[in-house]
Structures are given as C-alpha cells and as structure tokens.
Amino acid sequence: MLRIAVLVSGGGTNLQAIMDAVADGKITNTEIATVISNNKNAYALERAAKAGIPNCCISPKDYADRAQFHEALLAALDEAQVDLIVLAGFLVVIPEMMIRKYRNRIINIHPSLIPSFCGTGYYGLKVHEGVLNRGVKVTGATCHFVDEGTDTGPIILQKAVEVKNGDTPKILQQRVMEEAEWIIMPKAIDLIANGKVKVVDGKAIVEEN
C-alpha cells in the first residue's frame, strides 16, 4: 500500500480529485496518510478533515527561520511514514534536503506542457496569462517528479488542452484543471503505486498497460 502525503496551500481542488479517485478505485493500492498545508486557512485542510484524513498546518510564519520550518516539515512526513509526496498547489519552495531524501518520490502538477510556460515566475494564473499572451493553440498540464530545479524534473504524464477564442486566464485555468490536471495527477499516483514508473538516465519511463 502506497502511503502518500498531499501538500497544499489553497482550496485543494487537486486534493479533492485525488480523494475522489481513491474512493472510486481509479487510484489503487494507495492511501492518503496525511495532508499538510502551509496555510492554516486553506480549505484543503477542511476537505481532509471531512474525509477523516490526518491533516495539519506547518507554516514558515511559525518558525524562527526557514531551516526550522524545513525540519518540522520533514519530521511530519517522516512521522506519517510516507512513500510519495504529492505537491497539489503547494506554494512553498521545497528544500533540497527534502528532495535528496525523497529522490524521485515527490511529484508535482504544473498547468502547462513543460517545457513551455514553466520555471521561475510561472505559477497559478501567470501560466495561463503567458499562454494567452503568446497565442498558442494548445496548452495542458504536466505531472513530473521534483528535482532541484523549477519544473525541471522527469516528466511522468502530459495531457493537452485546447485554447479557445475568448478564453480568459481564469476560464483557461478551469479547463486545464478539469480536462488535464484532475486526470493525470491521479493516474500518475496509480501508476507509481503499482510499480509502473521508473526513472532511467533522468527520464521517467512509464510501463504501457
């Protein structure tokens, strides 16, 4: 059984997609061991509580420095005995000590087709603003492992989404979530839980069904 920690900062729509997929059997061999947020007011914590999932807030504001915050975050993950860390809209930079300890065991969802519209400064609505400003016809989402760079880790899954005339950043954001993020993030977790993803020479190899 794969034990996952879901790290969130806001409403937790990706968390809900994961919870629903576990409940529906789309994610197998997996349990959500803990939900952690850096924001005590995050609705994601309420979602977890309603589902009976252990949850807590670990905020940088509650510690003297980032080092103490990082230690507290790692301690919580260790205590929950997690096998995989899922970043589902977690707006805090992941410390290198955590990346080293959980090498190829941290995944993130990014709302574009990496390597387009990713890296420093591309987060949230800024990604979709960049897409619309450039005028591309296809965008999407990417689920990838996390390494020391920004959106540079091995890519697990990608799904394309059409950009339509009249899209605003918010409309496009919603479509990318519904048509891509909420589909490929649960699928990636299920693949990992069933031993169908391995990293070779810096690339994620996904076993075909």
Results as ranks from 00 to 15, higher is better:
K164N: 14
A64Q: 08
V93P: 00
G124H: 09
M177D: 09
I189W: 00
G11P: 04
I32A: 10
K198W: 10
K26A: 12
G52T: 01
I18L: 12
Q173V: 08
S37L: 11
V131A: 04
G195T: 14
V35W: 05
P154C: 12
R3W: 10
V206I: 15
I171R: 14
I85Q: 10
W182S: 15
P169R: 05
A180V: 07
L91Y: 01
K159Y: 01
K101H: 01
A160W: 12
Y123W: 02
A17H: 08
N108W: 07
R47C: 02
N104W: 09
T120A: 08
V82A: 04
G135Y: 12
E179F: 12
Q158F: 03
E96F: 15
L125Y: 01
D24Y: 03
P60A: 08
P111A: 10
L15G: 05
T142L: 08
N194Y: 13
E207Q: 13
V138C: 02
C118D: 09
A75N: 12
A67M: 10
T150H: 13
S59M: 02
S9Y: 02
H110F: 01
P186H: 01
I18T: 09
A180R: 09
V206A: 07
N209H: 12
N14W: 01
Q81D: 14
D151L: 01
A5R: 05
L7M: 14
E208L: 15
V146T: 14
A75V: 07
T34A: 07
N104S: 07
C118Q: 13
P169K: 04
A75E: 12
N108T: 15
I109G: 00
Q16R: 13
N108D: 07
A67P: 06
N39K: 15
D24H: 03
G52D: 04
Y102D: 10
P186N: 06
F69T: 07
V138W: 09
K50P: 03
V138T: 11
L157H: 08
P169L: 00
I183C: 11
F117N: 02
F90L: 11
D147L: 06
V161W: 01
R134C: 05
R105L: 00
D190W: 02
K164F: 12
G195N: 15
A188R: 10
A44E: 00
E71S: 14
D62I: 10
P169F: 02
M177K: 11
K50F: 02
K126G: 02
